[in-house]
Structure formats: C-alpha cells, structure tokens
C-alpha cells in the first residue's frame, strides 16, 4: 500500500479564462482524515469534482494508490474504491431507506442489468443493508420513504449508502452543512467511527468538526493551496486567520 492514497500534481481547472483551481498539489495520507477548508469560492468543491472526475482537469495529474486516474470515467473511479458524497444530500428520494442502501450493495453483485429477474432476488442483500442502517442509527426507519426523512437523517443515510461500497477512500462534501447542533455531533461521531481502516477527505466549514476529526488540513484560497498542516499549525497561521477568518472572528 502506498503511503499516499490520493495525490494531485499541479491540478488546474479553468472555466473560460477563470482559474477555479490552480496548481494544487494535494497528498492525502493513507488512513488519515484530511480536511479541505477555505472561504467560499476557494475551489474546494471543484477539487472534489476534479478528483472524482465529475469535472475534467485542464492540466495536472491525479493519482489514486499510485495509479494515474486523470482520464478514468467517474463510475470506474467508484469501482476502484474512491466514493464521494455530495454537498446537497444525495439520496434517492422515492425509494425506501433500505432500497437506497441496497442499490449501492447491488452494484457489486453484477445484477445491474438483470431485467428478467424479479426484484425480490435482491432481498438477500437486506441483511447487509440493515447492518449498515444500524451503524448510522436508521434501522428503525428502514421501510420509510426517503423523501420523508428529516435532513440530518438523509445525510446519515447518504453515509450508509457510501459505506455500502466499502470504499478505501471516502470523499465527503460538507457532511454537516445545514445541520442542527445535535445532528452535527452525531455525524461527527459517525465519521470517526467509520474512519477505521479507511481514508477520508472532507470539505468542511465547521471548524470545530475539523478540529475534532482531522489529522491534516489543507487550506485553499482562490483556487490555490494557502497552507497545510495539523489543526494547531493551521489555526495559528496568521495568513489563514487573515484570509479565512477575516482576521477578527474565530469560529
């Protein structure tokens, strides 16, 4: 296993002359929880979309476990073991909670194109789906229609769905965004729990979450890396205080 599970080399993305991400060299160490922080418009989500290939980089290289994935298709990235979540809760609203997780489990069974079989053949995945739901505290809601879940629970479901693929690298895009205090605490605990045996790269605005969870932090500003280090180093950096916190107010 390589020391760095994910590396980018001079990653750059231009949108019609506007440079959203410029020369980003990111190294995510295997086993770490790595945070990507920065003010709005710093390019955090763009970096996410680039490494998961939802966007194509203008120049630069992306390596996953030493393998060049700069031109790999996004669905194949997921198959390699790097699975992302989205900023807006990414669930399948008109499927039941259990079905949401099951459809993720189903991919590995190779039955995606089996249109001649009954869907009841998927019931064998129910036990595993329920296990995952229990991990995120949603087992009692397994039969509910997802659209009816409150926001925090949808995010928890999203996490369970991502975990169903057992990814080696999980990318979480603002997992606590828009959540109430209680939910933030629960999701933070959950992330710590599931981080065993895997690497997590997350975009996060909530600095108390970052300080509690993350081993290493990269600060982005206007598309470029401002600094990198652990929470103490980064939060003490006067540049970061000036750029990110506006100098005066700490989180």
């Amino acid at each position: 296993m390589s020391e760095h599970i994910l590396e980018t080399q001079n990653l750059t993305k231009e949108f019609k002359g506007f440079v959203a991400v410029s020369n980003v060299n990111l190294s995510v160490k295997t086993g770490h929880i790595h945070a990507l922080i920065g003010p709005n418009g710093a390019g955090k989500s763009t970096v996410f979309n680039l490494v998961t290939r939802f966007l194509t980089a203008t120049t630069g290289k992306i390596l996953f476990e030493g393998r060049d994935i700069t031109t790999t298709k996004p669905a194949d990235i997921a198959r390699l073991g790097m699975v992302r979540s989205f900023q807006i809760s990414a669930v399948f609203p008109h499927m039941s909670v259990r079905e949401n997780v099951r459809v993720a489990l189903q991919r590995a069974t190779g039955s995606a194109y089996h249109f001649w079989k009954s869907a009841t053949s998927l019931n064998e995945l129910n036990a595993r789906a329920d296990d995952l739901l229990e991990q995120v505290g949603l087992l009692s809601h397994a039969d509910a229609l997802t659209v009816e879940l409150p926001y925090g629970r949808k995010r928890a479901l999203e996490l369970a769905t991502t975990l169903a693929l057992d990814p080696r690298l999980m990318l979480l895009d603002e997992p606590t965004q828009g959540m109430g205090h209680e939910d933030v605490g629960r999701i933070t605990d959950l992330i710590r729990k599931v981080s065993a045996n895997r690497t997590i790269l997350m975009v996060e605005h909530n600095l108390s979450v970052v300080s509690r969870l993350c081993d290493r932090i990269t600060v982005l500003q206007r598309g470029a890396v401002l600094t990198e280090g652990n929470y103490e180093q980064v939060s003490a950096d006067p540049q970061v205080r000036a750029a990110y916190l506006g100098g005066s107010h700490a989180a």
Binding site: F92, H94, M95, Q106, Y113, H114, F115, K117, S118
Partner: peptide, 14 residues
C-alpha cells in the same frame, strides 16, 4: 420490478 428496474429508478432519482 427487476434488479435492473431498481437501477433505473436510482438513475431517474439522482
């Protein structure tokens, strides 16, 4: 109502 149908639904939904 098949495994493929579940995937179709997922694609339609998100």
């Amino acid at each position: 109502n098949s495994p493929f149908g579940q995937v179709l639904k997922a694609v339609r939904e998100n």
